[in-house]
Simulated scan of single mutants.
Amino acid sequence: MFSQLSKRPWLIAVAISLLLLLWLLSGSLFTAKQAASADQPAAEPGLAKVEIQWLQASPMQREHVLQGQIEAWRRVELRAQVSGNVVRLDQDKGSPVAAGELLLSLSADNRPAQVARGEADVRQRQAEVDAALRLRERKLISANELIRLQSELAKAKAELDMARIQLKDTKIVAPFAGVYDQRMVELGDFVQPGQSLLTLVDIEQLKVSAQIPQQDVGQLHIGQVVHVQLLDGRKMEGTLHFIAAAADPGSRSFRVEVKLANPERLRLAGASATLRIQTGEMLAQRISPALLSLDQAGRQGVKWVNEQQRVEFTPVQLISVDSQGAWVSGLPHKVALITLGQGFVEPGQQVAAQLAKGDS
């Protein structure tokens, strides 16, 4: 045999090359097996593998973020109580006015004459009653006649009061201090009772209204400090002064109102704002929103692994969400959260858990 190989030296080179290749392959396989056993913990065959991350609860400020609408503290639409022509525009639109200040005048027409006639009628009826009282003391007139005269006096006084009110209603005055906001009539217009004349708004104080979900309304109370942020970035501070007693039938949320001081009378009414209401400190964990899932009952929660290497599902309350993740409460103080493979395991299932890279 050796004589044959000596006659064919190329066969010797091929045989040596094959032996070297087999030796190299056996060493690589052995090294790979060693590396795999070092990276993977011992696990029972057939168990689903998941990655976990240990999370510990930390204190955070519970904060409700609501989108609100800024409104004037008071807004009233003044309407005509009597008919007449607009004879004077006593204030310009947009001007601040004091309570009781004259805003607009209607024609008096014959109302001063009606007042004068009413005053004369009352004086006459009063004199008749006074005379009847003296006669009644001497029993010269009946009690019924005295009652009739007293009734005529009361009627005359009522008519005089009505005439005075109608004359007074030709002067439209501000019921409170505010800003003369809109005017619906012009000089010379004829108006009828009930017709809109102008609007007056009070913006020295503002209110910001918003809706809060029914599950969160119990955490609010009157007088809480509320931080208000405008669309342009400006920040203001107000207090919660109203919480609706009943939820809106459509949204099942409760209306809340925040009182906001505006001494500079900035034109903010009608704008949008973000409300931030802090309701105390609590323990919570920050997780990725992608780890949230729903159970068969539709509850929102997360999956984690207990000490027996079994999957648990715990419903959580979403406190806040930002660019870095979601703050949730309801989990154990320290928990092995499943970060990879949670979609392939169910509560109660035993798994092979390993730490996610970078976790200790």
Rank of each mutant, 00 (worst) to 15 (best):
A158M: 00
R117F: 10
E159Q: 15
A113S: 11
Q114G: 04
E137D: 15
Q166C: 01
D121F: 08
I222M: 11
R88F: 06
R183M: 08
I141R: 08
R138V: 03
M162T: 14
T170Y: 04
A210R: 02
V208Q: 08
E101D: 08
Q205M: 14
L146S: 03
I141T: 14
A158N: 09
L167A: 12
G100K: 10
L103C: 09
S95Q: 15
A132I: 03
G223M: 05
A210D: 07
K155R: 14
D92C: 03
P193K: 11
P96R: 01
Q215F: 08
R88H: 13
Q166P: 00
R117E: 14
L135Q: 15
Q224H: 07
D130N: 14
I212F: 00
A127E: 14
P112V: 13
K171S: 13
R111A: 07
Q166R: 10
E152P: 01
L160T: 02
E145A: 13
G118D: 12
A120C: 07
L140N: 14
S151E: 13
R117I: 08
L104F: 09
Y180F: 15
D121W: 03
R136A: 14
V97A: 08
V129F: 11
A174L: 01
Q229R: 15
D189S: 12
S209N: 10
V173K: 12
H221N: 13
A177N: 01
A154F: 02
E145C: 00
I172M: 08
N85W: 05
R136T: 08
S151L: 10
H221V: 04
M184N: 13
K207Q: 07
Q166L: 01
G94A: 07
L133F: 00
I147F: 02
Q150Y: 02
K207P: 00
D189N: 13
V179K: 10
N110V: 01
S151P: 01
Q219I: 00
L106I: 09
L106S: 11
D202L: 02
L230F: 13
A158L: 05
V115Q: 11
L200E: 05
Q126E: 15
A113F: 04
V217D: 07
P193I: 06
G223K: 01
S142A: 12
V225G: 00
E137Y: 13
D216C: 04
L167H: 12
L103R: 04
A132M: 10
A127I: 11
Q205V: 04
R134I: 07
D169N: 14
K207S: 01
L102W: 02
